[in-house]
Amino acid sequence: MKRTITKFFSAVVMLSAFLLTVGVLTGSSSAAEKKALDTIKENGKIRIAVFADKPPFGYLDESGKNTGFDIVIAKRVVKDLLGDENAVEWVLLEPANRVEYLEANKVDIVFANFTVTKERAERVDFALPYMKVALGVVSPIAAPIKEIADLKGKKLIVVKGTTAETFFAENYPEVDLLKFDEISEAFQALTDGRGAGLSNDNTFLFAWANQNKGYVVGVPSLGSLDTIAPAVRKGNTELLNWLNDELKKLGAEKFIHKAFDEALAPFYGDTVNQEDLVVEGGVVK
């Protein structure tokens, strides 16, 4: 028995040493390789991360093609960069992976409804915003959540890696959160009655409540008014500057308004005022 114990401890020590080495190595190598504008042009293809389950911002249509507000804008960006809007590799991800995918150099731009926050800005470089957003809470009409106090003793559904999760964890730690990895799973749980409400971007919830009868955005605006912007890997200044110039150019021709009409208007009906959401040329009014 004594030998077993000695063996156990030596194994623990060896493994810890190994893990520390791995940790240090991965920590330093992730910052290394950078993919600048020239490399993208050489490859003739850009990798853009988008959502597959957040209609009407980023989702898959009946034929499985990527579509939505983010994609309409991203496609235009790709067209202006490489001359062909199809010269893009769409990378689908979960909200919690957005920073990760940039840091690990799996994508060049994240165009996945990415809200600008201080914590995120320390890890990635945000370009100019194209959209305004706040948080909201959606709940069944039969048992609506109208203020945060209504959540007492109930569960609130959130998606991991979203601003809603951080907001409640930091400002209302007493709210019992039910956390899901995927947006689609979170809404499934809401419709199954696993939680009293679901918190996410209000822009997204308005569209969802409009498509799903029996639900209402009882808390329409929560927290501060934030912006949503594309993001590139930290230090990828070349691509960032190009992207900012491009967004200014799109602003001059009111392209974001066009994208709104094309991708969002059918989902919102007349529930959302265009000017409450659209940001042109990165200028927030």
Binding site: L19, G27, A96, N97, E119, R120, G161, E165, K179
Partner: peptide
């Protein structure tokens, strides 16, 4: 089990990475 919203080890790791981006520390 994180797919059914249970906060087990794997689940809280993903959660912390998603919120604070301390990937190396969380994975370790």
């Amino acid at each position: 089990v994180s797919i059914i919203a249970l906060r087990d080890l794997m689940s809280v790791t993903k959660e912390l990475i998603g919120m604070y981006y301390n990937t190396v520390e969380s994975l370790l």
